[in-house]
Design a protein around this nucleic acid. Structure first.
Lengths: 246, 246
DNA sequence: CCAAAAGTGTTTCCTTTACACCCATGC
DNA sequence: GCATGGGTGTAAAGGAAACACTTTTGG
């Protein structure tokens, strides 16, 4: 049980155990007024038929970020680069996968208007599922993916407060209302339109006006909204505070 | 370059590459008015003689948290359980260690009044170094440890704002002034004593009074401070806001 | 009494919030 | 005109910061 001394280990690295390393990736988008995450239904054992986050093995010559991007493309057939890609943790319980010792590095990404995902690899089926479906327990996740899921959803919600992340859910040109709807979907909130308008305008360099020739006309009437694009500012100061949950 | 199909991988896990997995751990304490982190001076190649965060290999039957705690004990001869232990990221560039492919999981911990650390294993020497020494560039770290260091220091400072982490730097019974000095050391700030007093009292269950028979008398005169212990509240609401840097 | 540190009160300022109101479009 | 959503103004409430002031000890 006690390993070789560390001195020896330094000279004989092969004496130490090796692990399979995977990346699991939570791909977020906002659609139909809800924050959604890409889940697969497993096409093989263990947990055949259960919902899980997509993931796969890291290759020998690949860094972790690259592995995550490759998996994202393989699982979603999304061609675009993700608007955001970030690591959120490593999970390595010895018994988290019954087949072998696996260490998983968790990533999350944000994409805009993804195509219909396709099952592939170990996925029989893939779908952008509303986060609330998982939180309510109507969808149960395999392995330790519920823990991973809870960690990452909270992190996404928190980042919306202080960073410009919300823009990544939208097309390059967007209206402030669309941005507000991202926040409302992610937080299940109903932010005051006027105050939101003011807050996003307070941070210099957060929004820059787009071509003013083409204001966006709503389909249900109302004054057309002006279009904006992402400015260089990555942090929101002051932040957009998340309203206390009811 | 293209791997076997994922279908095959599920059935033949041995076809996928294996990685050495290590934990690196940043052990924080506050001493002599400064936030400090345990660094070692490497006793072997590569980077012989350079400063680095302590770390070591994860064993075959060990989860990641356990490996971090074991390394903490081995490197510091600290017997106490750390007051706080938390993961902060995984680092896996293919060339981050020239000897072999290594994925490192970063942890940070907080300890109180640690004993003099002893070199051991791959460490020729170990010392609690002021964080400012590394930030100023007077101490240079090996591998990608400066990146890791920057990530984790920012995270510690941020957690002090919203969580009860500060208590973990202190003995079980402490005064509010001692707690304020932890914040001042970690943030290089000079918080108003009166306002600090009020803020830590606002969160119910954050501080509970200790034995009132033994108020703490300062060595330079002044009214004795009452003693407190940690209450059940883990989050500070409202938070203690970090003053903007000059 | 004085110095020093603990702890409280109070005023001022700033941010956030709620909501009234005006603007610009389709029908 | 009227409905609808975009966008601005504003007053009231709440929280943070600065700092005066009181309390309790040692010398």
């Amino acid at each position: 049980m006690k390993p070789l001394s560390k001195q020896a280990a330094g000279h004989n690295p092969d004496d130490y155990p090796r692990f399979a390393v995977t990346v699991d990736i939570a791909v977020f988008t906002v659609a139909e007024g809800a924050l959604r995450v890409l889940l697969i239904q497993r096409g093989e054992e263990p947990h055949l038929g259960a919902w899980a986050l997509p993931g796969g093995f890291v290759h020998e010559d690949e860094d972790l970020d690259s592995a995550a991007i490759r998996e994202l493309h393989e699982e979603t057939s999304i061609k675009q680069a993700p608007g955001h890609l970030e690591q959120f943790g490593a999970y390595g319980d010895p018994d988290r996968d019954p087949r072998q010792r696996v260490v998983t590095v968790g990533y999350w990404a944000v994409v805009t208007d993804p195509p219909e995902p396709v099952g592939g690899g170990d996925a029989a089926y893939a779908e952008f599922v509303a986060v609330s479906e998982v939180e309510s327990g109507r969808i149960v996740l395999a392995f330790d993916h519920k823990q991973i899921f809870d960690d990452v959803v909270e992190r996404v919600r928190k980042q919306l407060e202080t960073t410009g992340l919300g823009r990544k859910f939208l097309e390059p040109e967007f209206t402030i209302s669309e941005l507000r709807q991202v926040y409302n979907a992610a937080w299940d909130a109903n932010l005051d339109a006027g105050n939101f308008q003011r807050k996003v305008s307070l941070t210099d360099g957060f929004l820059v006006p787009a071509n003013k020739k083409k204001p966006k006309v709503s389909d249900r009437g109302g004054r057309p909204a002006s279009l904006w694009t992402s400015g260089p500012a990555e942090m929101l100061d002051p932040p957009i505070t998340r309203p206390p949950k009811d």
